[in-house]
Amino acid sequence: MPLTTEEMNGVLVVTIHEKALDASSVKQFKTDMTPVLEHAKLVIFDLSQLEFVDSSGLGAILSCLRQLTGKGGDLKLCGMTKPVRALFELVRMHRIFDILNTREEALHTIRR
């Protein structure tokens, strides 16, 4: 799975360059994310290129959140497209994640 990471003032911004995060791509996502999450504490997922997420993709993002909060870190999501937001709101995940409009908003609010 094509991922790019950028370090910005101690915050790791992960951009997912993929159109869909579903059962077919989620395994790769998890493997790719493991080393990324190992060292980072504050992470932002930029989902602006993602046009589709299903429940397994959601599960993977949830597990990232659990890993990070488990070690005192934080995860924020930004740049969600309409279909992705529809899923998050359908399963009420906007009550669990901090969802922000833009990367700037996310960088601004993440706990230091």
Binding site: H94, R95, I96, D98, L100, E105, H108, T109
Partner: peptide, 13 residues
């Protein structure tokens, strides 16, 4: 995230 404590959003704004 929480309707009772919404002021976190002000920081993003």
């Amino acid at each position: 995230r929480d309707p009772e404590f919404p002021y976190r959003a002000a920081r993003a704004i």
